[in-house]
Design a protein around this nucleic acid. Sequence first.
DNA 1: AATTGTATAATTGTATACAATTATTAAAAT
DNA 2: ATTTTAATAATTGTATACAATTATACAATT
Lengths: 226, 226
Amino acid sequence: MDSSVMRTRRLSKDNTYFALKQKIIDSELKPDQVVHEESLAALLGVSRTPLREAIQRLENEEFLVRQPNGRLRVASVTMEEVREIFLIRSMLEGYIAKSAAKNATDNDIQNLTAMIGNIKQSFQSGKSQDFVSYGFEFHDYLSEMSDLKTFVKILNHLRDHALRYCRFVSLHGDWNTQADEEHNHILQMIADRNEDGAEKAMQDHILSSLSSALERIQGIQANRED
Amino acid sequence: MDSSVMRTRRLSKDNTYFALKQKIIDSELKPDQVVHEESLAALLGVSRTPLREAIQRLENEEFLVRQPNGRLRVASVTMEEVREIFLIRSMLEGYIAKSAAKNATDNDIQNLTAMIGNIKQSFQSGKSQDFVSYGFEFHDYLSEMSDLKTFVKILNHLRDHALRYCRFVSLHGDWNTQADEEHNHILQMIADRNEDGAEKAMQDHILSSLSSALERIQGIQANRED
DNA sequence: AATTGTATAATTGTATACAATTATTAAAAT
DNA sequence: ATTTTAATAATTGTATACAATTATACAATT
């Protein structure tokens, strides 16, 4: 045996899956864009076999859609889908916050407090473009606390979509300070072990980010009227 | 052109995906069973390429899991996972029932009433082994009414898992008459256009089937103590 | 000019061959 | 007897070749 750290082998199909998904999330591959296997394979430096296996997974997650003629295109971004994704997230993350409030230890409260401080600091110090990822740290910690493994798995899928929408509409700025306030409120509820309060606070937090996203999308679509 | 009905071509990978998923749902491939690509390919009469693409999708849906050594096995059935799946379903289907109540036309009410009648009749006439599928018709109709496409897509994934659990514990009998009552109650709420009532009724309905499922699982696991 | 038909090219779907990894077996060493 | 080692077999991962399908270009027809 070589080591106690059994590092899982890095497979080409998995790398391809993550790389491709990231390009979609970052809008490097744009909504509705038609993509071809050969060029994707060249772009990612793999043969078609692992690429196609990655594509199957991304089709299953609806980042890619197969047209009736067999051609592949990047999934659209529609207001209705954004609305539903965020609605579902509000329900699932709400319940996670409730469970987190139930399970919270004093140590958890300390860690969460520190985390929020870091987020605020990194925002104020200017390098805030990745605030969404920072915010996800907070949510991830609550997920751990909740111990709801299946909730979290499904939520991660949804959040990848949500992240794509946020990137798409370049969500940032004042929404960030609002999110900070909302995080603080959630934390307060959890510190009080107020389960229903935490659930409600989280639901409101997600629905508030939904409103911001929808406003931006409407703005973008209004600008498209040339 | 040959016809106005543009029937999408039947691909081997898609057939394989559905066939394999069905075998898992029906416990023809049992929980925790290790499966090999070569034998699956032989069983399904395809080569490894379309089989592997089907496997990618089923891994993504967590019907199959890849072990650290690369071997494939059928996902376990755990009480905790069943609990979470049904909990999530109660939230999503609850909201669907709420939206259905909002959108309901008189024609919808008639159709739903007829549907419930059919379910009850087919149950009383003995051929009730497929009652779960019949019940899904009712739920599917509500999904259509709700017009929440993303909710429905996610729900279908979850319901395949739920169906597997129901098959696994051979859920039937008295739960069936109870489900009938609950369906009637949901329908009543929708007919009254009572949105919150419909949501609550659906949530209770799903959580009640969860209780039945969990009881059965506990029973099975108790019997395993030899 | 618009439409149809046909040949060609481009693209996706499947099978197979081979490479890389993991499991199994049995012999050798302690 | 137990452990180690090496050789073999079994299995998964990847690349490539070819088949089936779809798109494109262009001539022929109306």
